[in-house]
Computed example of a mutant assay.
Amino acid sequence: MIVLDTSALSALAAGHARLHRIVDAALRSPFQHLLVPVLCLLEAEAEAEAKDEGVAAAVPALPAIEFEPLDATTTVVVATMVRDGYGGPDVAHAIAASLPTPLRPVQHLILTARQDLYPPGITTVDIDDPRLEP
């Protein structure tokens, strides 16, 4: 899976061509899905300019998008990361969504325009990385 963080969601809603190609490629793949932490969607919508349609309206309508909920266990993990200085709630939720779980036993990469927000050990790829060309 590929995790889309707040900055990637904002860029996607604004029409970022490379990200739209990634969504199209994920739709055609039986294995690749795009994971959106709900706190990243919330933050991207809160940051959206008034003239924009808004991320919360645009992103859920896209195919191949799955949402990472904020259940009780994830809330504790996210809150602990925020308390320990790993970033805001949206960044912490993106990190938590990228980490291995019993259901998803490998670490996933985070697509972002803000790699500087993530600590070492978290795999991030810039949304403008030329290796993302399908």
Score class of each variant (00 low, 15 high):
84 D>S: 12
26 A>R: 06
19 L>S: 01
106 V>Y: 13
34 L>T: 02
116 D>T: 08
14 A>R: 11
24 D>P: 04
74 T>H: 12
120 P>N: 04
35 L>V: 09
23 V>I: 10
83 R>P: 10
43 E>D: 00
43 E>N: 00
97 A>F: 15
57 A>L: 12
50 A>D: 08
16 H>M: 09
23 V>E: 10
79 A>H: 14
66 E>G: 08
20 H>K: 09
32 Q>Y: 08
111 L>P: 00
76 V>K: 12
121 G>Y: 11
59 V>Q: 07
93 H>L: 05
79 A>F: 09
106 V>G: 13
29 S>P: 01
79 A>L: 10
111 L>C: 03
91 V>I: 14
7 S>Y: 03
41 L>N: 00
41 L>Q: 00
96 A>V: 01
26 A>P: 02
51 K>G: 15
73 T>E: 11
65 I>C: 01
95 I>G: 14
99 L>N: 13
7 S>F: 07
115 Q>C: 12
94 A>M: 10
39 L>I: 06
116 D>Y: 08
120 P>L: 05
50 A>Q: 09
55 V>S: 03
73 T>P: 13
12 L>E: 02
35 L>G: 06
8 A>W: 11
30 P>W: 02
95 I>Y: 10
118 Y>H: 08
96 A>R: 00
62 L>S: 06
104 R>H: 09
72 A>N: 10
39 L>C: 05
81 M>K: 15
76 V>A: 08
72 A>T: 07
81 M>G: 15
64 A>I: 05
102 P>F: 06
92 A>I: 08
60 P>L: 03
31 F>S: 03
117 L>I: 07
120 P>S: 05
11 A>M: 08
74 T>I: 15
88 G>C: 12
36 V>Y: 03
40 C>S: 07
7 S>N: 07
110 I>R: 01
18 R>W: 04
7 S>H: 08
73 T>V: 15
12 L>Y: 10
95 I>M: 11
25 A>Y: 04
17 A>W: 15
19 L>P: 00
62 L>Q: 04
21 R>A: 04
82 V>R: 13
12 L>C: 07
26 A>H: 02
95 I>F: 11
85 G>M: 11
120 P>Q: 05
45 E>M: 05
58 A>T: 06
51 K>E: 15
35 L>D: 08
63 P>R: 08
77 V>C: 15
112 T>M: 00
24 D>A: 12
89 P>R: 11
64 A>T: 04
23 V>K: 05
9 L>W: 04
16 H>V: 05
48 A>M: 05
92 A>E: 14
45 E>Y: 03
41 L>F: 02
82 V>E: 12
113 A>I: 05
78 V>K: 02
101 T>A: 03
60 P>M: 14
92 A>D: 13
62 L>G: 01
50 A>T: 13
65 I>S: 00
48 A>Q: 03
119 P>Y: 01
67 F>V: 06
79 A>M: 12
32 Q>V: 07
70 L>K: 07
48 A>P: 11
111 L>E: 03
64 A>V: 05
9 L>M: 03
103 L>W: 07
87 G>Y: 05
62 L>P: 01
116 D>P: 03
99 L>C: 14
46 A>E: 09
43 E>H: 00
47 E>D: 08
98 S>N: 15
57 A>G: 15
23 V>N: 14
29 S>C: 03
74 T>N: 13
88 G>W: 01
73 T>A: 09
10 S>L: 09
121 G>R: 12
67 F>M: 02
62 L>I: 02
52 D>V: 06
97 A>R: 11
17 A>S: 10
96 A>L: 02
46 A>N: 13
